[in-house]
Simulated scan of single mutants.
Amino acid sequence: MSEHDDRCPCGSGETYGECCGRYLAAGRRAPTAEALMRSRYTGFATRATHYLLATWHPSTRPEVLELDDAMVWHRLDVVRTDAGGPWDDAGTVEFVAHYRLDDGTVIGQRGRLHETSRFVREDGRWLYVDGGIGL
């Protein structure tokens, strides 16, 4: 089985190619804020910094993005969405992303990131603006 046929890291139940791979590898635009958020989670899980930067709004995007190699992302739970549909220009997605630390000294320590992310749609393209960290 190829990576394209593996289950998508975002937890949708679809294969990577049918789900987030359409956006990360094939260059299609995510149709909703939630689809973009899921694909960005997959970008973190697969360390696709080019995609993460490309889908980050220019007003808040860092010049360089360095990911922590010790963080292994293993599950995404979408809690709630507000707007962010195909006809909206803005939306929010609340989610919990679960990770495990494996840096050679601390192995298996688990954590979670609870965030409510803000998205805007400009020129038909959804972009991540920022997020508020929760619990």
Rank of each mutant, 00 (worst) to 15 (best):
H114Y: 04
R110T: 14
Y99S: 06
V106E: 15
Y41Q: 01
A45H: 04
G85I: 00
T15V: 12
H4F: 08
L52V: 08
C10E: 05
R125M: 09
R61Y: 06
L67T: 04
L65T: 11
R61W: 02
T49L: 00
R121Y: 04
F44P: 03
Y128T: 12
G104N: 05
A25M: 09
W56S: 11
D89T: 14
D123I: 02
D69W: 12
Y128D: 10
A70G: 12
D123V: 10
P58T: 09
L135P: 15
T46I: 07
Y99N: 01
T55Q: 10
F95E: 02
D68Q: 07
D5Y: 04
V120G: 06
A97F: 02
G111Y: 07
Y99I: 03
P9S: 09
L65H: 09
H74R: 12
D103L: 00
A48S: 10
R22C: 06
R7H: 13
V120E: 11
V93L: 07
T32E: 09
H50R: 14
Q109L: 11
M1C: 11
L36Q: 06
V79E: 13
S59C: 05
W73R: 04
E115V: 00
T15E: 11
R40K: 08
R121V: 02
V72F: 00
G27S: 08
Y51V: 09
S39Q: 04
D5P: 02
R121H: 09
S59H: 11
D102L: 05
G91Q: 06
Q109Y: 01
S2W: 06
A35M: 03
R125K: 12
A45E: 08
R80N: 07
A90H: 14
E115M: 07
D68K: 01
L76V: 05
Y99Q: 08
D88F: 06
W87V: 12
G43P: 01
A45N: 08
G134N: 07
F95T: 00
V93P: 05
H98F: 09
H57W: 02
L53Q: 10
H50L: 10
L67W: 00
R121W: 10
D68N: 12
A45K: 00
E63H: 13
V96K: 05
S59F: 07
S12Q: 11
G134C: 05
P9Q: 02
T55R: 05
R29S: 14
